[in-house]
């Protein structure tokens, strides 16, 4: 009797033992996070090595301009909607960026006559009268040479802080985007001659929760002269 039971008990114990062991998962130290670190994209794993200029070169024509062309709404339409019902307009046209105090980015486009170029500050701006022309300034567009803010960077969902790395790189990226815009579209313009001429613009503005619509300043990502400066 005994002799038969003993191996059975031993066998049961061994099975039980292996069941216990197999319930544990063996994870090599160092391996467990590799999946997550991949989320830091190809740009950086350690916070170094992000090249803002290269990144901008990669996205400017292929992703950024197309995103604007697809999503930008006529500036006057957006402003009228905001005047009429701010909440609804934010929902319809705005991209909400979740930070401490949320802010909203609106991608806009328009055709307008330049009423004035104000370079009293290095943060120069042009005041424009959108079509249909009625002699009233409808919008302010910053043309630099100092471009303020990080609106271009913040205007598209595919640029995310986490993917870029750290604050310095994220900041670099904002500057580089502003620089690219200046290089491609502002520098070729003769701003001193631009008054009275018609431009088409593509850009974005940032609106904070309690900010007045009078303080809206558009950061362009593309400005093109519609007529010749000689004309």
């Amino acid at each position: 009797m005994r002799k038969k039971i003993r191996p059975l008990i031993t066998l049961l114990l061994i099975v039980f033992y292996f069941l216990l062991i197999s319930a544990c998962t063996v994870v090599k130290i160092g391996d467990e996070k590799s999946g997550n670190e991949g989320e830091y994209s190809t740009w950086t794993k350690t916070g170094t090595g992000f090249q803002a200029a290269d990144y901008v070169e990669d996205i400017w024509d292929d992703k950024l301009l197309p995103a604007y062309i697809e999503h930008a709404t006529d500036y006057m339409t957006v402003i009228s909607a905001l005047q009429e019902n701010r909440e609804a307009a934010i929902g319809q046209y705005g991209l909400t960026r979740k930070t401490g105090e949320p802010f909203y980015i609106f991608k806009v486009q328009g055709i307008a006559v330049v009423v004035n170029f104000d370079d009293s500050s290095r943060n120069g701006v042009i005041y424009v009268d959108s079509m249909p022309v009625d002699g009233i300034v409808d919008a302010t567009i910053q043309v630099g040479p100092v471009i303020r803010g990080t609106v271009i960077r913040d205007s598209v969902e595919f640029i995310r802080f986490t993917d870029v790395g750290n604050q310095l790189q994220f900041a670099d990226l904002a500057n580089e985007l502003n620089n690219r815009m200046k290089k491609d579209y502002i520098n070729p313009l003769d701003l001193n001659q631009i008054k009275g001429h018609t431009i088409s613009f593509l850009g974005a503005f940032r609106l904070e929760k309690e900010q007045s619509l009078d303080d809206v300043i558009i950061t362009p990502i593309k400005v093109t002269l519609m007529d010749s400066l000689d004309g």
């Binding site: 996070k33 670190e37 989320e39 830091y40 604050q167 310095l168 900041a171």
Partner: peptide, 16 residues
């Protein structure tokens, strides 16, 4: 600057 160690990082936008 290493991802995946913190579940979340709440950072002031120092640059802005």
């Amino acid at each position: 600057n290493v991802a995946g160690i913190a579940k979340a990082q709440l950072i002031s936008d120092n640059f802005q």
